[in-house]
C-alpha cells in the first residue's frame, strides 16, 4: 500500500503562559511542534504499513522551511520518506489553497491508496483540509476514525466516532481518513531513529513543481488575528461550611438562571 500522512507544524500551545500569549506564540520564530492530532495519523499509517508488507509511508507537509522539523519527527517515528511543500506565494494559504496544493502533491506522488490526517489542527482548527483533498481528488472520505477494521480488495472498513455514537462504515479505496485520538497511542521514536532522521534529505516542492500557477493559489478567505477579550476576572469567593457555601452558591446560580 502507498500511504501518505499529512503533517502540519503548529505552535506549541504548551508554551502559552503569562509571558507568551497567542499572538506571540504564533509569530515567526515561536516554538513549534507536530500538530498533536497528526501524530495519531502517523502512527495509524505505520501500523497499516507493518500489517501490509511492501507498503510505503510518505509524510507530506505544507509549511515554511522550518516545518522540515515536523517531517523529521515523522521520519523518526518510522515514515519511509517525506516531502515539504514550501513557497512564498503560499504564505496566506487558506484551507482550500492548502487542500489544492496537497492534492496536487498527492497526485504527483502517484498511486496513493490512503491519505491519513489528524481530525483537525490545534491552530486553525477548520477540520477542512482532509475533506477538501477528498473532494478535489474524488477519493472516499472517512472522518473521525477511531479504529480501522479492515483494508482489503480495494475497500476500507472503519469505525467513526460521531455525536450519535460509533458508526461502522465501508467505502472504496483510494480514501482519505481523518483520525481521532482513540485510534492509537503514538510511538516515541528511538534515539537511533531520531539521529537517522536528522540526516534525512527532505525535498522541497514549490507551486510550479506541482504544475500550479500563482493564480491557482489565491485564497478565498482573508483573516486578521487578535487576542480574545480578557475575562472580567472578578471571582466571587464563597466562604463557609459545606452546607452554608452550598446554599449560598445555589442561590447565586439560581439568580443567574443557570440552574
Amino acid at each position: 500500500m502507498k500511504i501518505v500522512v499529512l503533517v502540519k507544524q503548529t505552535p506549541d500551545t504548551a508554551k502559552l503562559s503569562k509571558r507568551m500569549d497567542g499572538l506571540q506564540l504564533s509569530a515567526d520564530g515561536g516554538p513549534r511542534i507536530v500538530n498533536p492530532w497528526d501524530e495519531y495519523a502517523i502512527e495509524a499509517g505505520l501500523v497499516l504499513a507493518e500489517k501490509n508488507k511492501g507498503s510505503k509511508v510518505t509524510a507530506l507537509c505544507l509549511g515554511k522551511p522550518e516545518a522540515t522539523e515536523a517531517l523529521k519527527r515523522a521520519i523518526a517515528m518510522g515514515a519511509n520518506d517525506a516531502v515539504l511543500i514550501s513557497d512564498s506565494v503560499l504564505a496566506q494559504a487558506d484551507s482550500l489553497v492548502t487542500a489544492k496544493v496537497l492534492a496536487a502533491a498527492i497526485k504527483k506522488i502517484g498511486e496513493v491508496d490512503l491519505v491519513l490526517a489528524g481530525r483537525s489542527s490545534i491552530d486553525g482548527n477548520n477540520a477542512a483540509t482532509a475533506v477538501q483533498i477528498a473532494a478535489l481528488l474524488d477519493m472516499s472520505m472517512l472522518s473521525y476514525v477511531a479504529s480501522i477494521e479492515a483494508v482489503e480488495e480495494g475497500s476500507i472498513t472503519a469505525v467513526r466516532a460521531v455525536e450519535a455514537g460509533r458508526e461502522t462504515v465501508s467505502d472504496n479505496l483510494p480514501a482519505v481518513i481523518s483520525v481521532v485520538r482513540e485510534i492509537n497511542e503514538p510511538r516515541y521514536p528511538s534515539f537511533m531513529k531520531i539521529r537517522k532522521a536528522t540526516k534525512a534529505k527532505i525535498p522541497i516542492w514549490g507551486v510550479a513543481d506541482l504544475g500550479l500557477s500563482d493564480g491557482d493559489v489565491v485564497p478565498q478567505v482573508l483573516w486578521e488575528m487578535a487576542l480574545p477579550p480578557s475575562r472580567n476576572a472578578k471571582i466571587d469567593l464563597i466562604n463557609g461550611t459545606p452546607v452554608e457555601a452550598a446554599k449560598l452558591l445555589a442561590d447565586k446560580l439560581m439568580s443567574e438562571k443557570v440552574i
Partner: peptide, 23 residues
C-alpha cells in the same frame, strides 16, 4: 459545526472553489 456539518461544508466549498470559515 457538528461532525457532519464540518465535513459537508468543507466538501462542498472545495467542489465550488469558495471560501470556508468553520466554527
Amino acid at each position: 459545526a457538528s461532525s457532519s456539518g464540518l465535513e459537508l461544508s468543507a466538501y462542498v466549498a472545495a467542489k465550488l472553489g469558495v471560501g470556508l470559515a468553520a466554527d
